[in-house]
Design a protein around this nucleic acid. Structure first.
Lengths: 155, 155
DNA sequence: GTGCGTGCAAAGACTTTGCACGTAC
DNA sequence: GTACGTGCAAAGTCTTTGCACGCAC
């Protein structure tokens, strides 16, 4: 269960990262004198299997589906740790609910949000990497990531 | 107090809109059989004067500074109406708090967010308009808006 | 005059926290 | 064996809602 190489490898969205995500998480925890518990491992596993945008509720449901009972408190605490580790990031489509997605070793996933159907489509806009880097350079800063959402509806 | 032409006119971010924002709001309300009350007018005025990203708390404080007392309930109710009218939009920098900014008749304001200082810098990336339109066309949709946030830190 | 709006306080939704017990290291 | 983690329930924060009174139309 600890073996989750990033290698859904044919996915063009993945950068060249060879280290399994669980190893990344483990290292972050060890570095801070924290423990790699079964709950934390199972939560990360589940997120990797989901491979989609999710919220705390969905994550708990997914775990329950695998007969794993984890409290909301632990879910929220672990999501915070995973964010700190750079493994997941918040999506922020609206302010109603905190949603997350895998981020580590991936290009940011840009979103096309249909206002008429509320459908969320993942898109790829590689030119943004260049754009954001230029913007940051102009401000003497280094880009760490970005978020891009396009709102659209039937024409 | 009703006269708030969009005309901070030299601002290159403003499109050519000649109608005062309050008129836009008024029309939306009338169309739905709702009333243009002093509270609603004062809230819109204050948002226009602020001309910055704000949250419900700040808005109430700003009103209080002008000796105008409006309840949180009314503020939230009015913010929702202003969003429906397309006059303001949510910013969504993080999920902690709903923030808003003026939107009507303006290009979306793109943001450069410093992770080291939490400073939020408004930037202008006009090429995104083109990019987003191309993306939408490719999906047979029409772009209604977008959100772009770059995260950066000292290099 | 009627119906919508406001303030207040209570309710709601999501998230965080204190505590006692359990477990990774 | 110790310090950190977990579950539970309670507390917190932001936001929404029910109700009685008041005002825009």
């Amino acid at each position: 269960m600890d073996l989750n190489p990033i290698a859904s490898g044919s996915d063009a969205n993945n950068l060249h990262v060879t280290e399994p995500l669980c190893a990344v998480f483990r290292r972050k925890l060890k570095d801070e004198g924290q423990k790699y518990t079964p709950e934390r491992a199972q939560i990360l596993d589940t997120i990797i299997q989901l491979d989609d945008i999710f919220d705390a509720e969905q994550l708990q449901a997914e775990l329950k589906g695998a007969s794993i009972r984890v409290s909301k408190a632990t879910i929220y605490r672990t999501l915070k740790l995973l964010q700190e580790a750079g493994i997941i990031q918040q999506v922020l489509v609206d302010s109603e609910l905190a949603r997350y997605q895998l981020a580590y070793g991936r290009r940011p996933r840009d979103l096309l949000i249909r206002l008429d159907t509320n459908e969320i489509i993942t898109i790829d806009a590689p030119e943004l990497i260049d754009l954001r880097n230029r913007i940051c350079s102009a401000h003497g800063l280094k880009a760490q990531g970005h978020r891009f959402q396009v709102f659209a509806a039937e024409g």
